[in-house]
Design a protein around this nucleic acid. Structure first.
Lengths: 149, 149
DNA sequence: CATATTCAGAGTAATTTAGTAGGAATTTAT
DNA sequence: ATAAATTCCTACTAAATTACTCTGAATATG
């Protein structure tokens, strides 16, 4: 559940790559990160539209971050590739929610959305490009037996 | 993004219904909650396997909660319908993660998983069946302009 | 002017989600 | 006993989403 689309995973890997590379062509990033070239090209189009990347066309062109990675929130990245976070339809559309029980679960979904939003807004691209990011916290999680599926 | 499958939404609506109804047939719940009968039947099979529902077969049979709603965590419900929360493949499978950059984003996804898990484990079925649930917190969220898509 | 790049839009393939169909097994009311 | 109402089981189909691919134009540069 909550499987994140490869599109978003690719976007983030590529952005992390650009934190270090400063500037690079789609082709070079695609190769380094093992991402299908044409797909990444399309993804970069979205990231550019969202104001996260700038591009230079022509022979020695390429992409670079449009702002400092410290200023790029992960919520922006996710929004750029997937649109707004919206676990259920009725969250943006109160009139839709006319099922019986007065749609009690709505509040629950709203809380979930909030939990995700808060997290995504608490992390910047610069942070996840940093090898030490969340190292301690992650270890705790790692201890768990780890059920599959 | 993070669209929750209708299957899970149906499951939760039906469970909330059962918190009040004590016992009911799939047919009656499906009608009351506007859920396709045959689909709900299949969903209840999963919820029963997961130990959340008990069933009585035969003419005056039906489903009921297998335990008190105070003891049913929403994480259990979601796991029952969708399996483990796992934003990216490599979280349960460290060897898979052999992309360049040493897969820095992994920690980020782990944090997201954690944020969602913590939330889902903090809420019980009994709570979301309660009309006052999260009323105050939700209002704050409601104020936001609410972009679409 | 050849080449390397971004950019744009349509089209296809694969996967997942959503829902149907048909009927067997079980219990109960009459 | 029997008919009806239910859960239960398996397979199938349909719709939607995701993940790409294809073609080629626009643009800059060495």
């Amino acid at each position: 559940m909550f499987q994140v689309p490869t599109k978003t995973q690719y976007a983030i890997r590529a952005l992390v790559h650009l934190v270090r590379a400063k500037s690079a062509s789609v082709a070079s990033i695609a190769e380094a990160e093992h991402i299908p070239f044409k797909y990444l090209e399309a993804i970069f189009g979205q990231l550019k539209s969202a104001g996260l990347l700038s591009a230079d066309r022509g022979r020695s062109g390429g992409y670079r971050l449009a702002k400092d990675p410290e200023l790029i929130l992960m919520s922006e990245v996710v929004r750029a590739t997937e649109g707004e976070i919206k676990p259920v339809e009725c969250l943006n559309n109160a009139t839709f929610c006319v099922v019986s029980e007065g749609c009690l679960p709505r509040r629950f979904w709203q809380g979930l959305k909030r939990a995700v939003d808060v997290y995504l807004e608490s992390v910047t691209l610069a942070e996840i490009a940093e090898p030490g990011f969340m190292a301690a916290a992650a270890l705790v999680q790692e201890e768990a037996p780890g059920a599959s599926e």
